[in-house]
Write a protein that binds this DNA or RNA. Sequence first.
RNA 1: GCUGAAGUGGUGGAAUUGGUAGACACGUUGGACUUAAAAUCCAAUGAACAUUUAGUUCGUGCGGGUUCAAGUCCCGCCUUCAGUACCA
Length: 1170
Amino acid sequence: MKYDFNQIEKKWQKYWADNQTFKAENNSEKPKYYVLDMFPYPSGAGLHVGHPLGYIASDIYARYKRHQGFNVLHPQGYDSFGLPAEQYAIQTGQHPAITTEENIKTYRRQLDQIGFSFDWSREVRTSDPSYYKWTQWIFIQLFNSWYNKNADKAEDISELIKLFETEGNSKVNAACDDDVELFSAEDWNGFSTKKQQELLLQYRLTYLAETEVNWCPALGTVLANDEIVNSVSERGGHPVIRKKMTQWSMRISAYAERLLQGLETIDWTDSLKESQRNWIGKSVGASVFFPILSFPNGEAKADSKKQPGYMTGGNNSHLLLERAKEMRVNPTQAEAALWEQLRNKKLNAKFRQQHLIGDYIVDFVCLDKKLIVEVDGKIHENQLEEDAKRTEILENDYYKVIRFSNEEVLGNIEEVLRAIQEELSKRQSVKNEEVPPQGVRGIEVFTTRPDTIFGVSFMTLAPEHELVPQITTPAQKEQVEAYIEATAKRSERDRMADVKTITGAFTGAYVEHPFTKQPIPVWIGDYVLAGYGTGAVMSVPCGDQRDYDFAKHFNIPIPNIFEGVDISEEAFADKDKTIIANSDFLNGLNYKEATKKVIAELEKIGQGKGKTNYRLRDAVFSRQRYWGEPFPVYYVDGMPQMIDAKHLPIKLPEVEKYLPTETGEPPLGNATVWAWDTKKNEVVSNELIDHKTAFPLELNTMPGWAGSSWYFNRYMDANNDEAFASQEALNYWRDVDLYIGGSEHATGHLLYSRFWQKFLFDKGLVPVDEYAKKLINQGMILGTSAFAYRLENLTLVDVNRNQESNKIDPKNIEQLKQKTLKDLERFKNSIVKTVKADETVFIPSFNGEIMKMSPVEVSIALQRKVADFLQIDDKSKVLNGEYFVNVHFTPIHVDVSFINASDELDIEAFRNWREEYKDAIFIGEKGEIINGDNDIYKVGREVEKMSKSKYNVVNPDQICEDYGADSLRLYEMFLGPLEQYKPWNTAGITGVHGFLKKLWKLYVGENGLLVNDDEPSKDSLKTLHKTIKKVQEDIENFSFNTSVSTFMIAVNELTAQKCTSKEILESLLILISPYAPHIAEELWNQLGHNESISTAPFPKFDESHLVESSKNYPISFNGKMRFTLELPLDMSKEEIEKTVLANEKTQEQLQGRTPKKVIVVPGKIVNIVG
RNA sequence: GCUGAAGUGGUGGAAUUGGUAGACACGUUGGACUUAAAAUCCAAUGAACAUUUAGUUCGUGCGGGUUCAAGUCCCGCCUUCAGUACCA
């Protein structure tokens, strides 16, 4: 009987499906084990051989765990929302759901034929309403939560509202927007519902806010930071610009510290954890405040002691704040009337009322535009004077103050608003939304090295820093403006590409050192980024290389504050070796001590405090796309409202077109039935929108990572309608024991999903706050592209006419090698002509070496052949070396299916491939024009990513057809370590395929089963048990490639031993079954079992079979092995030495010399030192 | 620049705590079987020298070091891949 893998594999795949062999039970006596793969996006191209690599590894592990007696959950599903289906819909009008369904069918067929032990009863699809119902549900939970930093967890928003109602927000310690205004309980209770909603949005874990986003015009959507690679879109490589848009965001920054700490508790690869750490980007240091000494108008230096509002130490700001709040609650009639008009951004500007500016409370202020509006009551003489003074001081601080009388406001409010509007339009917006600490004239910096504060010799601001225009002196104005303009012109790419060039400009301003009180010049430079920290750096040139370079370049002093360190050449940045000097009270301290001390001192004088900064930003959660989860959100008066969870799912509406609308709205703007009726609680036609009972629904959809951020929990109870998973299921399965997937998700999916899990944990919805105990990254399988080399043209060069190089002897390759292509430039004068072939001609690859050869070598190797072929007129000159031929060619990707195992091209198939190659001419390795079998054409090879456009994609369907799924599984594992990137080469599969045939032959002969109940031989037992040991170790170390070798060795040995013992061969089948399940099932069945092999207990390793009585000792001389000697293992050290020395081969080696020393390691080696 | 991983025959890769480098395969070469091909089987296969046998020398990116013994440990470099990037 032959090994008919096609028939066997089909048979068992059907058996597994019919019997639901791999269905996991939620209630089982067995211990649980959860093996998870990253679910695929079902693309139209189907699977190539690279895709299943991780699935095969996890399947082996899952099957192994079943043999070990575990109740294994090994599910699979589809991340089925995404861009390609939508792009296809835009092109063809085909609904993405249909495309997706078709693609899933292909995927399922392809996955099934590889024989995975997935529990398909738990399949999930993120685009299925029964699934995204719960994605929407989780979104609502996020909306209804805020992050309480005191409790260090997410809590229900109602708790926050309670706090607001009873004590306002001044004591609330929450993760929130940077610019929340302070309010009291009375304020809160007096606010309109809308105002309250606005304020709450600043605290919710998912919130709607105008944020600067990465907008990709080509894709028509925003992108998250992790979707951008090298400042172009990850998908398609389109340019990305920064743009302000109102978008949903996820407050992942609230979890920055816990996401960082959690990494300590999970067994993920170091590189992946490191990526996440970098992405979170924690830096511990201090925030330091430097008062500004000089303003362009020559105003006297600011007294830092009198700065109110900054920090909490020793000033009266809190009294003023209290007063401001009081006044807010009790406005005058005119103030109330004007506030009513200003509050809702009716003038497109955000105003605050009774706001503290410097030492003054102003009536209304637009911080953005630095515009103050005052409404005056009864005017007394002395107040008039005071107001004028106040105006002067405020205007010195670049505020514009406009005043109206009560009568004006109450009499003609329209006119007042018009005047304010006019003033607003005149004023330039402060670029950065962040406003400086109220009324303080100074610069706040973030530093990780506060210990070096005495080494500060200048200050550098980002050119975009909001204070730059205000502090620049008239003398420096021109220079500074020119510099800002120059940096603005430079694109981000240029800036990135050119890190070395040092540029900057002096503003003319000075700040005051907090301790020495010395003036410090303020510079701007584009090495300081506006987006990180405060956009300002205290520059310590002796301790930071960039500051050092900047200082050197602009001749700024570089004071040395390190003990015993030479800084004449470069900065000294080694924290651990730092001893501070020349630093007043910090002298003699190390980095840690000095940091601690300086922070304490800064706090004492109210000019700084310890601070931790994170690079992690909140994640934008809106996409201007059709094929994604719709938000369960409608808008009343511009404010988002959640649809009650019991009405979920909110299904995607039908649209005519999948493109943005003409007005630039997202595709859902095309939907005609996309409004929410709050009475009927259903989606209704847009025509019914009346803003009373029917309201518009959200037009954005959720990003790709929404559905993948929690799917691992859904598998635990995939068909539950009542909850995303029942508590019983969640408590039984708890977390993923082994997660296998690609490392490309390090800062996307793998970070977002940890965030959601922590949130769900905080809310008591899941039992663990890290969902995957262990994670392994599988490497990528690369394609081996094949190339044919198309001749473009030949340039004939008359060597005699080149004066410099005389005549080149074609035989002297060494001389010619020295002629680079650049040298050929010098032949310009000598070029006789350039010849282009009429036909398409392919030149030989020289056994694939052509790309490694220098142009000169190629030319020499080819000139005769090609000249001959082209029949150029001056052929004789070419042939006798007077003319040199320079060959120009282009490598062309050839479909790898035309290549045989020896890299030879099937020329006929290639010619039929494309019209343009129909009559292509091939010059073979021997230099002959190929015509029949006279010569062969070998392709060149190069390893590249598998991709359709490179024609190097290998389809697993063909492999399964030709060699079988078991061969495919074994071969993918055999290729190399799981984590490694490695090239695919189909030819190699014959090795594992041959192994399976051999395995088969061990059990089945010409006339049927060979297995009998014979006592196993000692050798066979030894083979079996060493295999058990090795395979078990290998699987547990995820070293699947070496266990395949072990199987080969075992089968080779057992074949040689002619083993037919059932005891041995039965155990061997269980060992192999996780790797090659079909053949294992079949042979298991033939051995007389009626049950599937999948839960047969894993064979037990018995050491006793491996015990040896003797060892073949390597005998080495001075460390070099010369021969081996079989000696009993129980021989003593002394006896071994004696026996070895007595041996004639030893004497031969020694040639009469006496050994100086003899090293004997019993059981290992003997080394004789002579 | 920083962080992480890696560098071993023609190729993919083995080598557990320092102890016979190149397991297991692919490929190549030769042979058997066959009308032939495929399949299968056998043998050889790191390089160089020697070849009648035996053997000798070199060899794990490079240069040093520790050790009886180094692919493995230490010091200093080089190269490749991946991530990240003027992060204060």
